[in-house]
């Protein structure tokens, strides 16, 4: 049985510190190996200083069914540059060697984990310094497959709650969730329509009535203003598509990283972080 108060993880410590500071968490998403391994490493290493509190690293997959065009293209760039699951874990190890504080969440789809196979992947992820995982296509109904084995290894399994997660289902979604809850602000794919703030506020409040965990909001967040407004109704926001779009628009004509690729991602993160620091943590 998972205990109510697990040993403090990097994620728990991070959210506790943010709470003391009275500001929301800024969660950034980029894809491992996009547009190439070294550029991706430089982007990741600079994220905490640019203002990221938590880093989600996308594990590229050939068929990212829950993602919009921006993340799809990012995944494809990474795969074309030779990114693999092994190299993604390597990237985390290299990051951890330099930063032992910032929580790292791997996000992706089940198949590359399943064929790794799962147990070996979870072992190596833990040993590489991964803190948590979001696996889009493994629902709570399949908890024995991945979620429980991840928890046994001290990895947080972070669940997505969505606008269709009704009160009947919410307990199942929250049951084995740890670290934080990721509220998907829209029915849709990443990078799609902007969320309606009043809906998000009501839904986050509903989730928070059922769990002591922090709730962060993602999908469709792009601008500092939007991030600030949404952060006002939750414990943090996730920005992803806007960052991988910045990678795409700064690529050279050969499709390789351009001179501004790394700095432009960091600049957007700085702007978003500044916007968010203008927001007080709420709820």
């Amino acid at each position: 049985m998972p205990s109510q108060t697990p040993p403090q993880t990097r994620i728990d410590r991070c959210f506790a510190a943010l709470k003391r500071e009275g500001r929301p968490a800024f969660v950034t998403f980029v894809t491992a190996g996009d547009p190439d391994y070294e550029t991706s490493k430089a982007i990741l290493l600079g994220l905490p200083e640019a203002g990221a509190d938590v880093i989600e690293i996308g594990m590229p997959f050939s068929d990212p069914m829950a993602d919009g065009p921006a993340v799809q293209a990012s995944s494809l760039r990474a795969l074309q540059a030779g990114q693999t699951m092994k190299r993604t874990l390597q990237l985390v190890r290299e990051f951890r060697a330099k930063d032992n504080l910032t929580p790292i969440i791997l996000m992706g789809y089940y198949n590359p984990i399943y064929v790794y196979p799962s147990a070996a992947f979870l072992d190596e992820a833990r040993d590489s310094g991964v803190d948590g995982m979001i696996v889009v296509d493994v629902p709570p109904e399949a908890d024995e497959e991945l979620c429980l084995p991840a928890m046994e290894r001290g990895l947080s399994f972070i669940r997505l709650a969505t606008p269709t997660t009704d009160d009947k289902r919410l307990p199942a979604v929250l049951a084995n969730t740890s670290g934080f809850v990721y509220y998907v602000s829209i029915t849709g794919i990443t990078g799609a329509a902007a969320p309606v703030v009043s809906d998000v506020r009501a839904q986050v409040a509903r989730i928070k009535r059922s769990t002591p965990l922090p709730v962060v909001v993602g999908f469709g967040v792009r601008t500092p203003e939007q991030a600030k407004t949404l952060a006002d109704c939750a414990d943090g926001v996730v920005v992803g598509s806007a960052l991988v779009e910045a990678i795409r628009t700064t690529l050279g004509p050969d499709g390789k990283a351009g001179p501004d690729t790394i700095s432009s991602v960091h600049r957007i993160v700085q702007n978003l972080a500044a916007g968010l620091r203008g927001a007080a943590s709420r709820v």
């Binding site: 069914m65 629902p139 009704d166 998907v184």
Partner: peptide, 12 residues
């Protein structure tokens, strides 16, 4: 077999 879908689709 099974039901390996995103949470948004699970209730449906």
């Amino acid at each position: 077999g099974g039901r390996f879908v995103a949470e948004t689709l699970m209730p449906l």
